[in-house]
Each structure stands twice: as structure tokens, then as C-alpha cells.
């Protein structure tokens, strides 16, 4: 075959290309299979949690593991409406999940709004204006993230007790600035830096004030970044356990705290706890779905600078 009428070199080259294409196809096929398997593996904890939330206590503890079972909404009734059907000590647990959910919305929402206001001003200033020791200021914000929470939480507890911020919404919103503002400053700073300086210079020549430059140029152009940062900040606040645990009490109990109260002294109410966990992630899921486009765009937006 190698000595056929086809000009030398042509046929072997076609064969090589074909083999390469096959290899590439095979590689892509295997890659996709691997990614699909990985995707399902990452889904297992969520699926497990969801299925457990639909099981009765007996099915939760069954051995061998029950894949097929009669689903029940009892756990959701208990968690959402305080309606308990089983006669057990755990059934008398009165965890106020709706109340805790509302508290989380107020605290995480309030903290995100306040931090977005303050953090964006700082990020814009650090990105656009030359000032002495600018990097020191920027590092100062980041330093809050370096310090382990327990370094400052005990003094904060004492201070909060003395200034009556303990167990208040305002106190919770303020303490969350410790994690929210550094996140916003450092994320948004790169977005603002990626906007061409000429735009601000032109606006400045036209007489725009710094606030106008921020409002009319920077914020609209950095909208994807704003959306992504706001969502990430909200999630960080929503999931936080330590601050509401140590600086709050019954009146400001958030949903992360309320969920663990299904761990009782005499048994663990896995069904109710997983139902509460599902309820807990719903707002984050909804939020993430609505702004998913912005998150993906936002996370890569600041990566390429002028």
C-alpha cells in the first residue's frame, strides 16, 4: 500500500490526521464522561440531604440504606409550620425556622447592602486615586481577613455587651462588615481598575465630580462585578455561624444556628435537620440562578486589565 499510485506522503498524512482526530474525539469523549461522573459525584451530598429530608426517622436509620422508601413531608411540616406528628421528645423541639430565616434575611441582607455602599466607595478610591500609602490602606482592609475570628471575637463580645449592641440586628449587621468589606474592596477594586482611565479623565474634563464618576461611569460598567460581589457577600454572611452564635441570642438567631438545634441530647433528628438545610440553601440557590450570568462574567471581568 505504501508504494501505491497515490503520491508519496499524502496517504500516510491523511491516516495520521485521522488517527489524531480519533484520539482527540476519544479524549473529548472520555473527558466528558469524566466530567459527567464528577458532576454527579458533586451532586451526591445534595441528593443525599434532599432524600433524607423526605424520610421518616425509621427510614433514615435503616440498614441497609434505603434507596426506595415512602416519601413524607413530615419533616418540612415540622420545620416550616411547627407541625409535629411523631410522639417523641425530638418531636417537641420547637425550632423557629421561619423566624430564623427572617433573621438571616435581615442580617445578611442588611450587612450586604451596607457593605456594598461602604466597600464600593473604598474600592473606587483605591482603584482610581493616587494617595500616599495607598497599598497600605488596601492591605489594611485585607488584614481583617487574616486575623482568625477568635482573636477579636472575645473583645467584641465584651464591647457589644457594654454598648448594648449584643443580640441586636444592628450589632449583627455591623460585625458582618468585618468579613464583607474586605471581600468587596478587594474584588471591586480590580473591576474599577480595569475600566479605562481615559473615561474618567474625559468625565473630569467635562466637570463630573468624583461621586458622579462613580455613579455614572464606574458603577454601570462594573455592574457584572457588582452583582457577583453582592451575591458572594450575601452568601458569606448568610452562611456565617460564629458571629450570630457568639454575639447574638434568641432574638437574632440565624438559620445556620437554628439548623443545628436539631441535634438533641438523646437523638439527632436527621430528617428535620436536612429539611432545614434544604430550606437554608433555597435563597442562595435562587439568588445564584438569577445572577449566574453576571457571576460568571463578573468573576472574569476584572481579570484582564488595560
Amino acid at each position: 500500500m505504501q508504494n501505491s499510485a497515490i503520491s508519496p506522503g499524502t496517504q500516510p498524512m491523511i491516516i495520521r490526521e485521522s488517527a489524531q482526530q480519533k484520539r482527540e474525539r476519544r479524549f473529548h469523549f472520555l473527558l466528558h464522561v469524566a466530567l459527567i461522573i464528577y458532576f454527579f459525584i458533586t451532586l451526591i451530598p445534595f441528593a443525599w440531604t434532599f432524600l433524607t429530608s423526605l424520610k421518616s426517622s425509621r427510614d433514615v436509620a435503616a440498614a441497609p440504606l434505603k434507596i426506595f422508601f415512602s416519601p413524607t413531608l413530615d419533616n418540612y411540616r415540622a420545620v416550616l409550620f411547627n407541625q409535629y406528628s411523631a410522639d417523641s421528645a425530638m418531636a417537641r423541639v420547637r425550632v423557629d425556622i421561619p423566624g430564623a430565616f427572617l433573621n438571616s434575611m435581615i442580617i445578611a441582607g442588611g450587612a450586604t447592602i451596607l457593605a456594598m455602599l461602604l466597600g464600593n466607595l473604598a474600592a473606587f478610591a483605591l482603584a482610581r486615586y493616587k494617595m500616599p500609602e495607598r497599598e497600605v490602606y488596601a492591605f489594611f482592609f485585607l488584614a481583617f481577613r487574616f486575623a482568625p475570628v477568635f482573636v477579636f471575637i472575645i473583645p467584641m463580645f465584651i464591647i457589644y455587651q457594654q454598648v448594648h449592641l449584643y443580640n441586636t440586628y444592628l450589632g449583627m449587621i455591623l460585625i458582618f462588615q468585618v468579613i464583607a468589606i474586605p471581600l468587596i474592596v478587594w474584588t471591586m477594586r480590580s473591576f474599577y481598575e480595569s475600566i479605562p482611565a481615559e473615561l474618567f479623565d474625559s468625565a473630569s474634563i467635562d466637570g463630573a465630580t468624583r461621586v458622579q464618576q462613580l455613579r455614572q461611569i464606574a458603577l454601570p460598567l462594573a455592574a457584572p462585578g457588582l452583582a457577583a460581589t453582592a451575591v458572594l457577600t450575601f452568601i458569606a454572611c448568610w452562611n456565617n455561624f460564629v458571629f450570630p452564635f457568639l454575639l447574638g441570642a434568641k432574638q437574632t438567631q440565624t438559620i445556620t444556628l437554628a439548623t443545628i438545634t436539631f441535634i438533641g441530647y438523646e437523638e439527632v433528628a436527621w430528617g428535620m435537620m436536612t429539611a432545614a438545610a434544604i430550606v437554608t440553601i433555597v435563597p442562595e440557590l435562587i439568588l445564584a440562578m438569577f445572577v449566574q450570568k453576571h457571576i460568571v462574567r463578573g468573576l472574569t471581568y476584572g481579570a484582564v486589565k488595560e
Binding site: A89, R92, V93, R94, G264, Y265
Partner: peptide, 10 residues
């Protein structure tokens, strides 16, 4: 503490 005694007392 989260305990049956607590639940009975409330």
C-alpha cells in the same frame, strides 16, 4: 441545653 427536660419546662 437542648434536652427533653428543657422542652418539658418551657
Amino acid at each position: 441545653n437542648k434536652h427533653p427536660y428543657t422542652e418539658s419546662l418551657l
